[in-house]
Protein backbone atom coordinates (compact mmCIF):
# COMPACT_ATOMS: atom_id res chain seq x y z
CA UNK A 1 0.00 0.00 0.00
CA UNK A 2 1.20 3.46 -0.85
CA UNK A 3 1.77 5.31 2.38
CA UNK A 4 2.61 8.84 1.29
CA UNK A 5 0.16 10.31 3.78
CA UNK A 6 0.70 7.95 6.66
CA UNK A 7 -1.08 8.98 9.82
CA UNK A 8 0.11 6.11 11.91
CA UNK A 9 2.54 5.71 14.69
CA UNK A 10 3.30 2.28 13.35
CA UNK A 11 2.82 0.51 10.07
CA UNK A 12 3.64 -3.15 9.91
CA UNK A 13 3.81 -4.64 6.46
CA UNK A 14 2.10 -7.99 6.52
CA UNK A 15 3.90 -11.03 5.28
CA UNK A 16 1.29 -13.20 3.58
CA UNK A 17 3.17 -16.44 4.18
CA UNK A 18 3.23 -16.12 7.90
CA UNK A 19 -0.15 -16.02 9.66
CA UNK A 20 -0.22 -13.28 12.22
CA UNK A 21 -2.94 -12.18 14.57
CA UNK A 22 -4.29 -8.68 14.48
CA UNK A 23 -6.35 -9.12 17.63
CA UNK A 24 -5.66 -11.43 20.52
CA UNK A 25 -8.60 -11.51 22.88
CA UNK A 26 -8.29 -13.11 26.30
CA UNK A 27 -10.90 -13.47 29.03
CA UNK A 28 -13.07 -10.64 27.73
CA UNK A 29 -16.18 -9.92 29.78
CA UNK A 30 -18.47 -6.97 29.22
CA UNK A 31 -21.36 -5.53 31.19
CA UNK A 32 -23.98 -2.91 30.37
CA UNK A 33 -24.64 -1.71 33.90
CA UNK A 34 -25.45 -4.95 35.70
CA UNK A 35 -26.33 -6.97 32.61
CA UNK A 36 -23.46 -9.04 31.35
CA UNK A 37 -23.37 -9.07 27.55
CA UNK A 38 -20.11 -10.93 26.84
CA UNK A 39 -18.78 -13.93 28.77
CA UNK A 40 -15.12 -14.88 28.82
CA UNK A 41 -14.32 -14.47 25.12
CA UNK A 42 -11.01 -15.93 23.99
CA UNK A 43 -10.10 -15.75 20.33
CA UNK A 44 -7.33 -14.72 17.95
CA UNK A 45 -8.32 -12.82 14.83
CA UNK A 46 -5.91 -13.34 11.93
CA UNK A 47 -4.43 -10.53 9.91
CA UNK A 48 -5.44 -9.85 6.30
CA UNK A 49 -8.34 -12.22 6.36
CA UNK A 50 -12.06 -11.79 6.55
CA UNK A 51 -13.48 -12.91 9.84
CA UNK A 52 -17.25 -13.20 10.01
CA UNK A 53 -19.19 -13.07 13.26
CA UNK A 54 -22.59 -14.70 13.17
CA UNK A 55 -25.27 -15.40 15.73
CA UNK A 56 -28.90 -14.61 16.52
CA UNK A 57 -30.08 -11.12 17.52
CA UNK A 58 -28.93 -10.11 20.96
CA UNK A 59 -26.08 -12.63 21.09
CA UNK A 60 -23.50 -9.90 21.63
CA UNK A 61 -21.91 -9.95 18.19
CA UNK A 62 -22.29 -6.21 17.60
CA UNK A 63 -21.20 -5.46 21.15
CA UNK A 64 -18.11 -7.58 20.60
CA UNK A 65 -17.29 -5.78 17.34
CA UNK A 66 -17.69 -2.37 18.94
CA UNK A 67 -15.42 -3.42 21.78
CA UNK A 68 -12.57 -3.92 19.31
CA UNK A 69 -12.33 -0.16 18.65
CA UNK A 70 -13.84 0.75 22.00
CA UNK A 71 -16.87 2.36 20.38
CA UNK A 72 -18.91 0.38 22.88
CA UNK A 73 -17.80 2.91 25.49
CA UNK A 74 -20.19 5.44 23.92
CA UNK A 75 -22.67 3.77 26.27
CA UNK A 76 -21.64 5.30 29.59
CA UNK A 77 -22.49 2.30 31.79
CA UNK A 78 -20.19 -0.15 30.00
CA UNK A 79 -17.63 -2.07 32.05
CA UNK A 80 -15.12 -4.56 30.70
CA UNK A 81 -12.58 -7.00 32.03
CA UNK A 82 -9.96 -9.09 30.29
CA UNK A 83 -7.59 -7.99 27.56
CA UNK A 84 -7.75 -7.30 23.85
CA UNK A 85 -4.33 -7.04 22.30
CA UNK A 86 -4.16 -5.15 19.04
CA UNK A 87 -0.81 -6.01 17.40
CA UNK A 88 0.62 -6.81 20.78
CA UNK A 89 -0.61 -3.89 22.88
CA UNK A 90 -3.64 -3.95 25.13
CA UNK A 91 -6.31 -1.59 23.83
CA UNK A 92 -7.63 -1.07 27.36
CA UNK A 93 -4.25 0.20 28.51
CA UNK A 94 -4.94 3.62 30.08
CA UNK A 95 -1.96 5.03 28.20
CA UNK A 96 -3.42 4.04 24.84
CA UNK A 97 -5.86 6.68 23.59
CA UNK A 98 -8.96 5.69 21.67
CA UNK A 99 -8.33 8.25 18.93
CA UNK A 100 -5.16 6.44 17.94
CA UNK A 101 -6.82 3.03 18.17
CA UNK A 102 -9.73 4.12 15.97
CA UNK A 103 -7.34 5.45 13.35
CA UNK A 104 -5.93 1.95 13.04
CA UNK A 105 -9.23 0.17 13.46
CA UNK A 106 -11.83 1.80 11.24
CA UNK A 107 -15.51 1.06 11.29
CA UNK A 108 -18.41 0.81 8.87
CA UNK A 109 -21.85 0.93 10.42
CA UNK A 110 -25.10 -0.93 9.94
CA UNK A 111 -26.97 2.00 8.45
CA UNK A 112 -25.10 4.11 5.88
CA UNK A 113 -24.22 7.25 7.84
CA UNK A 114 -22.63 9.80 5.54
CA UNK A 115 -22.30 13.33 6.89
CA UNK A 116 -24.72 15.88 5.46
CA UNK A 117 -21.82 17.32 3.50
CA UNK A 118 -20.49 16.96 -0.02
CA UNK A 119 -19.07 13.64 -1.21
CA UNK A 120 -15.61 15.21 -1.17
CA UNK A 121 -15.95 16.56 2.35
CA UNK A 122 -17.18 13.19 3.58
CA UNK A 123 -14.02 11.47 2.42
CA UNK A 124 -11.77 14.35 3.46
CA UNK A 125 -13.26 14.37 6.97
CA UNK A 126 -10.89 11.76 8.39
CA UNK A 127 -7.68 13.13 6.87
CA UNK A 128 -8.70 16.64 7.94
CA UNK A 129 -9.26 15.73 11.58
CA UNK A 130 -5.80 14.18 11.55
CA UNK A 131 -4.34 17.43 10.31
CA UNK A 132 -4.00 17.08 6.53
CA UNK A 133 -4.89 20.46 5.08
CA UNK A 134 -3.29 20.76 1.63
CA UNK A 135 -5.86 20.62 -1.16
CA UNK A 136 -3.52 18.55 -3.33
CA UNK A 137 -3.02 15.89 -0.66
CA UNK A 138 -6.72 15.79 0.10
CA UNK A 139 -7.57 15.48 -3.60
CA UNK A 140 -5.24 12.52 -3.84
CA UNK A 141 -6.67 10.79 -0.76
CA UNK A 142 -10.24 11.37 -1.91
CA UNK A 143 -9.63 9.83 -5.32
CA UNK A 144 -7.66 6.92 -3.92
CA UNK A 145 -10.26 6.15 -1.27
CA UNK A 146 -13.17 6.38 -3.68
CA UNK A 147 -11.34 4.13 -6.14
CA UNK A 148 -10.55 1.77 -3.29
CA UNK A 149 -14.23 1.50 -2.49
CA UNK A 150 -15.12 0.99 -6.17
CA UNK A 151 -17.34 4.05 -6.31
CA UNK A 152 -15.02 6.55 -8.02
CA UNK A 153 -16.53 6.15 -11.49
CA UNK A 154 -20.03 6.73 -10.15
CA UNK A 155 -19.26 9.93 -8.25
CA UNK A 156 -16.17 11.51 -9.83
CA UNK A 157 -18.24 14.12 -11.69
CA UNK A 158 -20.23 15.20 -8.65
CA UNK A 159 -17.79 15.30 -5.78
CA UNK A 160 -19.21 18.57 -4.51
CA UNK A 161 -22.77 17.32 -4.39
CA UNK A 162 -24.37 16.38 -1.10
CA UNK A 163 -23.79 12.75 -0.16
CA UNK A 164 -27.46 12.39 0.75
CA UNK A 165 -28.26 12.42 -2.96
CA UNK A 166 -26.62 9.00 -3.40
CA UNK A 167 -28.55 5.74 -3.24
CA UNK A 168 -28.38 3.63 -0.09
CA UNK A 169 -25.84 1.23 -1.60
CA UNK A 170 -23.69 4.07 -2.89
CA UNK A 171 -23.87 5.75 0.51
CA UNK A 172 -22.60 2.60 2.17
CA UNK A 173 -19.70 2.30 -0.27
CA UNK A 174 -19.03 5.99 0.34
CA UNK A 175 -18.84 5.21 4.06
CA UNK A 176 -16.37 2.42 3.29
CA UNK A 177 -14.33 4.89 1.22
CA UNK A 178 -14.49 7.36 4.10
CA UNK A 179 -13.12 4.66 6.35
CA UNK A 180 -10.32 3.86 3.88
CA UNK A 181 -9.30 7.52 3.84
CA UNK A 182 -7.86 7.23 7.35
CA UNK A 183 -5.77 4.27 6.14
CA UNK A 184 -6.76 1.81 8.83
CA UNK A 185 -5.27 -1.65 9.16
CA UNK A 186 -8.49 -3.22 10.31
CA UNK A 187 -12.02 -2.50 9.12
CA UNK A 188 -14.87 -3.45 11.39
CA UNK A 189 -18.17 -3.87 9.60
CA UNK A 190 -21.39 -4.02 11.59
CA UNK A 191 -23.99 -5.69 9.37
CA UNK A 192 -22.99 -3.41 6.51
CA UNK A 193 -25.53 -4.75 4.05
CA UNK A 194 -28.57 -5.21 6.26
CA UNK A 195 -30.11 -1.95 5.02
CA UNK A 196 -29.29 -2.60 1.35
CA UNK A 197 -31.02 -4.27 -1.58
CA UNK A 198 -29.56 -7.49 -3.06
CA UNK A 199 -27.65 -5.79 -5.90
CA UNK A 200 -26.03 -3.26 -3.59
CA UNK A 201 -25.29 -6.08 -1.15
CA UNK A 202 -23.49 -7.97 -3.89
CA UNK A 203 -21.38 -4.92 -4.74
CA UNK A 204 -20.41 -4.42 -1.12
CA UNK A 205 -19.53 -8.11 -0.78
CA UNK A 206 -17.33 -7.95 -3.87
CA UNK A 207 -15.68 -4.87 -2.45
CA UNK A 208 -15.03 -6.62 0.86
CA UNK A 209 -13.27 -9.40 -1.05
CA UNK A 210 -11.02 -6.88 -2.80
CA UNK A 211 -10.22 -5.02 0.42
CA UNK A 212 -8.96 -8.22 2.00
CA UNK A 213 -5.71 -7.75 0.07
CA UNK A 214 -4.73 -4.81 2.22
CA UNK A 215 -6.91 -4.91 5.30
CA UNK A 216 -7.98 -7.25 8.04
CA UNK A 217 -11.75 -7.28 7.97
CA UNK A 218 -14.12 -8.30 10.72
CA UNK A 219 -17.71 -8.41 9.61
CA UNK A 220 -20.78 -8.96 11.74
CA UNK A 221 -23.68 -10.40 9.84
CA UNK A 222 -26.97 -12.06 10.61
CA UNK A 223 -26.95 -13.46 7.11
CA UNK A 224 -25.29 -16.89 7.20
CA UNK A 225 -25.05 -17.14 3.43
CA UNK A 226 -23.12 -13.91 3.46
CA UNK A 227 -20.73 -15.22 6.08
CA UNK A 228 -20.23 -18.38 4.04
CA UNK A 229 -19.73 -16.39 0.81
CA UNK A 230 -17.26 -13.76 1.95
CA UNK A 231 -15.34 -14.92 4.99
CA UNK A 232 -12.23 -17.01 5.65
CA UNK A 233 -13.01 -17.59 9.29
CA UNK A 234 -16.29 -17.57 11.12
CA UNK A 235 -17.13 -17.12 14.78
CA UNK A 236 -20.51 -18.17 16.16
CA UNK A 237 -21.77 -16.23 19.16
CA UNK A 238 -24.69 -17.27 21.33
CA UNK A 239 -25.98 -15.53 24.46
CA UNK A 240 -22.78 -13.56 24.88
CA UNK A 241 -20.50 -16.56 24.54
CA UNK A 242 -18.20 -17.55 21.72
CA UNK A 243 -19.46 -21.01 20.86
CA UNK A 244 -17.23 -21.88 17.97
CA UNK A 245 -14.53 -20.24 15.90
CA UNK A 246 -12.89 -21.93 12.95
CA UNK A 247 -12.35 -21.82 9.21
CA UNK A 248 -15.57 -20.84 7.49
CA UNK A 249 -15.66 -24.04 5.44
CA UNK A 250 -15.21 -26.19 8.51
CA UNK A 251 -17.74 -24.30 10.57
CA UNK A 252 -20.44 -24.54 7.94
CA UNK A 253 -19.75 -28.09 6.75
CA UNK A 254 -18.59 -29.78 9.87
CA UNK A 255 -19.42 -27.81 13.05
CA UNK A 256 -18.06 -29.20 16.28
CA UNK A 257 -20.71 -27.83 18.59
CA UNK A 258 -24.31 -29.00 18.48
CA UNK A 259 -25.56 -25.43 18.99
CA UNK A 260 -23.62 -24.24 15.94
CA UNK A 261 -25.10 -27.00 13.88
CA UNK A 262 -28.60 -26.16 15.09
CA UNK A 263 -28.10 -22.51 14.20
CA UNK A 264 -26.59 -22.95 10.76
CA UNK A 265 -29.13 -25.55 9.76
CA UNK A 266 -31.86 -23.11 10.72
CA UNK A 267 -33.25 -24.92 13.73
CA UNK A 268 -33.32 -21.64 15.67
CA UNK A 269 -32.34 -17.97 15.31
Amino acid sequence: MNTTHVLKTEQVKPNPKEEKNVFEIAGLNLWYGNDQALYDINMNIPENQITAIIGPSGCGKSTFLKTLNRMVEMVPTVKTSGTIKYKGTNIFDPKRNVEDLRTHVGMVFQKPNPFPKSIYDNIAYGPRIHGIKKKKDLDEIVEKSLRGAAIWDEVKDRLDENAYGLSGGQQQRLCIARCLAIEPDVILMDEPTSALDPISTLKVEELVQELKENYSIIIVTHNMQQAARVSDKTAFFLNGELVEFSDTNTLFSNPEDQRTEDYITGRFG
Binding site: N69, M74, E99, R102, F109, N113, R128
Partner: peptide, 23 residues
Protein backbone atom coordinates in the same frame (compact mmCIF):
# COMPACT_ATOMS: atom_id res chain seq x y z
CA UNK B 1 -28.27 15.47 15.79
CA UNK B 2 -28.42 11.76 14.86
CA UNK B 3 -26.18 9.55 16.95
CA UNK B 4 -25.02 7.80 13.77
CA UNK B 5 -23.23 10.97 12.64
CA UNK B 6 -21.36 11.29 15.92
CA UNK B 7 -20.45 7.60 15.78
CA UNK B 8 -19.09 8.06 12.27
CA UNK B 9 -16.86 10.86 13.50
CA UNK B 10 -15.65 9.08 16.64
CA UNK B 11 -15.13 5.93 14.57
CA UNK B 12 -12.50 7.73 12.50
CA UNK B 13 -10.51 8.76 15.54
CA UNK B 14 -11.95 12.25 15.99
CA UNK B 15 -11.85 13.75 19.45
CA UNK B 16 -14.98 14.94 21.19
CA UNK B 17 -14.14 18.56 20.45
CA UNK B 18 -13.57 17.85 16.74
CA UNK B 19 -16.84 15.98 16.60
CA UNK B 20 -18.67 18.86 18.26
CA UNK B 21 -17.18 21.52 16.00
CA UNK B 22 -17.35 19.62 12.73
CA UNK B 23 -20.47 17.50 13.07
Amino acid sequence: VPNELKEASYGMGATKWQTIVRV
